[in-house]
């Protein structure tokens, strides 16, 4: 009796082992493929963007003009000029303002959710913040155009409400949910023993947050902020609608600007494929790619540096 039972058991085990011996490597390869696909896509996209503009970038683009001239006249009849300085200034000014709003708000909300509130209120707050992330960007743009524009004219006595301030506030609000959810995860990952030890030593809750939790969670918090920056640089339709879409270097937050992304979105549809204007827009794409690559690389190096300390 015992012999036969163990025999069948052994048989089943060996069958499942045999299946596992075939399936396991297959799944392993599938997962490996998924991992490599990310590399493939990143290089593929970079190659596509660069090669679409390569002819123009290599042969006819005046790189000095492209980087230092604020004059963007791709459709001029008499004198075409491809200077992106004003567009870069537009992107940087709006992104900077957005981060000045989103970082304190986002990190503050993350600290509040993670450390200062409990129970159903905490859950409700988390859901509402996530809901904020689900609002489509065109709706944000519409809010900028229809609601913020007259408000900014009235409150700041500005000549027009579609400007850096408007775009920055809208983009800031759009980046907050990303910073909150990643920041909150980072704070949650800090072991409770840290908090208990700090409180036991007589520190207040706030002292615990900024002397213990912030240093302990800094790589996660930094990642949260930089992902927020990435969101802000890449956003298109909301800034197109809220910033006024005017090619100029801003002197104050109340000036209208135009961003790199909005320029591509607004102009690509009309250009003849392969023409200079078309390829110049791809050159802007390369510039954007370099920006986001730099932001991500910095983030990575910083996080690594912090971890190694």
């Amino acid at each position: 009796m015992t012999d036969t039972t163990s025999g069948t058991d052994e048989g089943q085990v060996s069958t499942s082992r045999r299946i596992a011996a075939i399936v396991e490597p297959a799944i392993e390869w599938l997962i490996r493929l998924c991992g490599f696909s990310a590399i493939f896509f990143v290089f593929g996209i970079f190659f596509f963007v660069f090669s679409s503009g390569a002819d123009f970038i290599m042969n006819r683009l005046d790189v000095v003009e492209f980087m230092t001239s604020p004059e963007w006249y791709p459709t001029s009849v008499s004198n075409k000029r491809y200077g992106t300085l004003a567009l870069v200034a537009g992107t940087l000014s709006v992104t900077t303002l957005a981060m000045m709003i989103a970082v304190p708000f986002g990190l503050g909300t993350a600290v509040f959710i993670s450390e200062f509130c409990d129970g159903p209120f905490k859950e409700a707050l988390k859901i509402i913040v996530e809901f904020l992330a689900a609002i489509p960007s065109v709706v944000w743009g519409f809010i900028g155009l229809a609601i913020m524009n007259p408000v900014i004219i009235d409150v700041f006595n500005a000549p027009i409400g579609l400007n850096v301030l408007n775009g920055g506030v809208i983009l800031g609000l759009m980046s907050v949910p990303i910073i909150v959810s990643i920041g909150e995860d980072a704070l949650k990952a800090v072991p409770d023993t840290y908090r208990e030890a700090s409180l036991a030593l007589g520190a207040t809750k706030w002292q615990t947050v900024y002397k213990v939790l912030f240093p302990a969670a800094r790589s996660g918090l930094l990642a949260a902020v930089l992902l927020g920056v990435g969101r802000a640089i890449g956003e298109t339709i909301a800034v197109l609608m809220a910033t006024g879409h005017a090619v100029q270097i801003p002197n104050s937050p109340l000036d209208s600007v135009r961003t790199l992304t909005a320029t591509i979105a607004a102009e690509l549809g009309e250009t003849a494929q392969g023409g200079d204007h078309y390829q110049a827009l791809f050159a802007i794409g390369v510039l954007l790619f370099i920006f986001t690559f730099a932001v991500n690389l910095t983030a990575d190096l910083l996080v690594r540096g912090i971890k190694n300390k």
Partner: peptide
């Protein structure tokens, strides 16, 4: 350069209607 370049005929009129300048 520096004009507000809008994408629609109606957008222009809407913006002018809400902007005294």
């Amino acid at each position: 350069l520096g004009s507000r370049d809008l994408s629609g005929s109606k957008d222009v009129v809407d913006l002018v209607g809400s902007t005294p300048c």
